[in-house]
């Protein structure tokens, strides 16, 4: 005997103990919350630990809010870097391309030059060909994406497929992407009718959230 005290913890207790911080903060999955609730009803140690976690005065330790002048000053500094960054990247790309060309073996330079000449020849041949007017079927997507406005929408989980179809037809929109990690779908609608589609979707109880993804006109 060496006099050491051994603590035997059930795997369940250990697992629940490690979930307590998120149980206390509220950011926990419902099934995990149920497990913690059940365990707390009979574990005094976890009850005490939870009480301790809930007694910590985290709200008294938040940073004081900044003034608008502070934020504007920080933003001003960043604006200068945004503009500088773009010019610097172009210069860097040109510099790297030039350095790469000089370092490349002679045969690589000849091969690249031949490829460029071939591409130029192909482009010239295409341009001199006779071109017919483009033909579109009625069902084809509008090739001009600028004519389409994009909306992000989250449907209520209880909405039926039939209702979604009816809603899309009524608003003149169609699904073009999604669902994203947040359960949102991207819809496309004719730009001229985008405001109407947005209002129609917003007014429907089966839609939890809808926002326009395209920048407002004139920006």
């Amino acid at each position: 005997m060496n006099g050491r005290v051994l603590h035997f913890e059930s795997p369940d207790h250990r697992e629940i103990d490690r979930l307590l911080p998120w149980y206390a903060s509220g950011a926990i999955e419902p099934d995990q919350r149920d497990r913690v609730d059940a365990h707390l009803a009979e574990c005094v140690r976890c009850q005490r630990e939870l009480e301790w976690l809930q007694s910590l005065p985290f709200d008294a330790d938040a940073l004081p809010a900044e003034t608008e002048a502070d934020i504007e000053q920080a933003l001003q500094r960043l604006r200068g870097r945004l503009d500088a960054g773009a010019g610097q990247r172009v210069r860097l790309s040109l510099h790297n391309a030039h350095r790469g060309w000089r370092r490349a073996p002679v045969w690589t330079r000849w091969a690249l030059a031949a490829q460029v000449a071939l591409c130029c020849g192909l482009v010239a041949a295409l341009l001199t060909q006779h071109t017919d007017a483009p033909y579109h079927t009625l069902g084809a997507a509008n090739p001009d994406s600028a004519a389409q406005a994009r909306l992000a929408v989250v449907f209520d989980p209880s909405i039926s497929l039939v209702r979604v179809n009816a809603l899309l037809q009524a608003s003149g929109a169609r699904i073009v992407d999604g669902p994203t990690a947040t359960g949102a779908y991207v819809l496309a609608a004719p730009r001229a009718d985008a405001d109407k589609a947005l209002a129609r979707l917003r007014a429907d109880r089966g839609v939890r959230t809808v926002v326009a993804l395209s920048a407002p006109a004139g920006r």
């Binding site: 903060s25 509220g26 809930q54 910590l56 709200d59 989250v154 939890r208 926002v211």
Partner: peptide
Amino acid sequence: HFPILQSGVRNAARDEASI
């Protein structure tokens, strides 16, 4: 005393903010 909990942020509001 959790700042986030006291502000009463709901899941729906978070979804909306994410979108």
